[in-house]
Write a protein that binds this DNA or RNA. Structure first.
Lengths: 344, 344
DNA sequence: TTCAACCACGCAATCGTTTGCGTACCCAGA
DNA sequence: TCTGGGTACGCAAACGATTGCGTGGTTGAA
């Protein structure tokens, strides 16, 4: 490996000077600098991040710890986070939490021993008790991503859920539905909990009563059977809100198994739009989460916190966009009072 | 930060002894070891990967450089790679190549300066000339992932394409189609090139002639319009093979725009199955790439190469599985002489 | 001629580990 | 009393950068 010493010898200067030239950290005579740069070029010197880190303390790398599910949104998030980090000269270390506190803790420890400058974390349901305290104690700059547990005293960025779900429900109510179901993730996940709250709120605004029978808060793999159970009810739902991507897939599978035509026999609106939403028949009405913006914001907040660890923690909620298609039973009119986006 | 020195002082031994105790690298008297471990416990000492790397040379981290596209397969790949690496005690550093040689080079340089022990790379079309030589010269242990350019002298893992595509085409031929089109990525990408080759081979086996008009090798974003152009031909195709995920989406969009019923008006088979393949109407017949297995194999090969840099390079091709549904025009019979997997 | 101010650069300590050599001690056998 | 072989541990030199403190040389004003 080519080191600063090699470059220095080739250029006929000291290591100190090489360092100052490549880092522009103090003035160096033009001619000397040129010799050094030429030596750098000809040796292919790249610098050693390890050695640098040892003395400076920072690593210019940040850890991203989240459950690597099949959620198609994740790719967009990763891309945005990587791009924003890259622009700031940092690199991304990835760790799968499996959404379980034990793996999550292990992932965080691994990142810490790698001396990452900060951590982006999508906390599991158990995190507020089991892993966040450790993070706080260790003083690791952290931003929570996508899920927003309460009272953590930590920076957070995620989607706005309550209002968005409420709007979705209200829309179904305005279309005349009286039995509106909700299929979503387990209550421990803040996102699911908030959407359940928004659902209730939306029912209220549509002058409908909340019925616990119509709510299925289930793990991702159970959503299809949960939906089938809802359909078996004495008073089955005529419309359903899918709280996330697995719920959407589950509802669609259940409808297909029961031979129900979505949009006609069963109105459907979903959180988290997918890129195949317009390929289905009928195309799915859904809220598109601003994942890329969430990722970028999270990175910016993390960098700010690294720069100023004392700043008061902030929580940012980014509103989704409604993509109005036909699965809700409409045939493509915009929803009144809504910021809508039409398909091309 | 708590260092070995702190632990050593607390335990009343030298730094050397602490190191040997925590690494079990030479025998230490039972009583001393216990004192040291107690000190480790009470200080919460974790060790500093940075300092260790500086002296040992290794970082126990590997770089994954690939284009972070929206391809849903990527998540499964990431998950598999991360899991396999984790099991081996390594961590994953992610870098987006944007599928362009310049960004790719930058990504590789960044990984190298981070002293990764090895690199997993999905090479861009320009890579064999522009980035692989640098990798070879630097002696970075490398495994190529997903795309398999020829004569690189580098370990490679990817899907089997020629035979798989040929089978797909032959199936369409057996259903009576005479005008079978191919929509796939640009020829520079080895995967697309191999699939184009398999397509030609399949035509031959179905006793059909190859017609350049029926082949669209286009960038991902152009697949829909390319498909429409094919449909405008004097003798438009009655069946189409989608070479990858963007091509599939493009073909579906084009068909929808033209009001063509897939499976009836236009037979469709695709490479790269998607988890919503069974939700469409009709469900999509596709080959499911063994992405997870590809990821795991790549990691294993990389670790082997790190252990033995002199070993002769290997190329591994993993065959996909056929998921036979209805978009090809069949109504669910297995294809003769094929290893098929039925949907639940 | 002297001296201050400034410019251009180098010395050597430092970061937290690992590890090749030693050294001090103990005990058994001659 | 030596000596030889263990056992239990410590010293100090790396690893490759960054950076506070100097030092030698030139210049211009007094």
């Amino acid at each position: 490996m080519v080191t600063m010493r090699d470059v220095a010898e080739l250029a006929g200067v000291s290591i100190t000077t090489v360092s100052h030239v490549v880092n522009k950290t103090r003035p160096v005579a033009q001619s000397t600098a040129e010799r050094v740069l030429a030596a750098v070029e000809s040796t292919g010197y790249t610098g050693d991040a390890i050695a640098r880190s040892l003395v400076t303390g920072g690593t210019r790398s940040i850890g991203l710890a989240l459950p690597l599910t099949g959620d198609p949104q994740l790719m967009a998030l990763l891309r945005a986070v990587d791009a924003e980090l890259n622009a700031a000269g940092h690199t991304l270390i990835l760790a799968d939490t499996h959404d379980q506190p034990e793996t999550e803790t292990a992932a965080i420890r691994s990142l810490r021993s790698r001396r990452v400058d900060g951590v982006l974390l999508t906390p599991s349901p158990g995190a507020p008790e089991l892993v966040l305290p450790e993070l706080r104690r260790a003083g690791v700059p952290t931003v929570l991503l996508g899920r927003l547990p309460e009272n953590t005293g930590i920076d957070q960025v995620g989607p706005e859920n309550v209002q968005a779900t409420s709007d979705l429900v209200r829309h179904l109510g305005e279309l005349g539905h009286r039995r509106i179901a909700l299929v979503t993730g387990p209550d421990g996940v803040s996102t699911a909990a908030e959407r359940a709250l928004g659902y209730r709120l939306g029912l209220g605004r549509a002058k409908l009563v909340w019925d616990s029978e119509l709510v299925a808060s289930v793990p991702t793999e159970d959503s299809a059977s949960a939906m089938e159970r809802l359909l078996d009810l004495p008073g089955p739902p005529t419309a359903v809100v899918a709280g996330d991507h697995p719920a959407l897939v589950g509802v669609l599978r259940a409808a297909r198994r029961r031979g129900l035509r979505v949009g006609t026999d069963l109105a459907l609106v979903a959180h988290e739009d997918v890129d195949w939403g317009d390929l289905l028949d009928p195309p799915i009405t859904a809220t598109a989460q601003p994942v890329a913006e969430i990722g970028r914001t999270a990175v910016r907040m993390l960098l700010e916190r690294i720069a100023d660890p004392e700043r008061a923690p902030r929580t940012v909620r980014l509103p989704p966009t409604l993509v109005h298609r036909q699965s809700c039973g409409c045939s493509h009119q915009p929803i009144p009072d809504q910021h809508t986006r039409q398909e091309p």
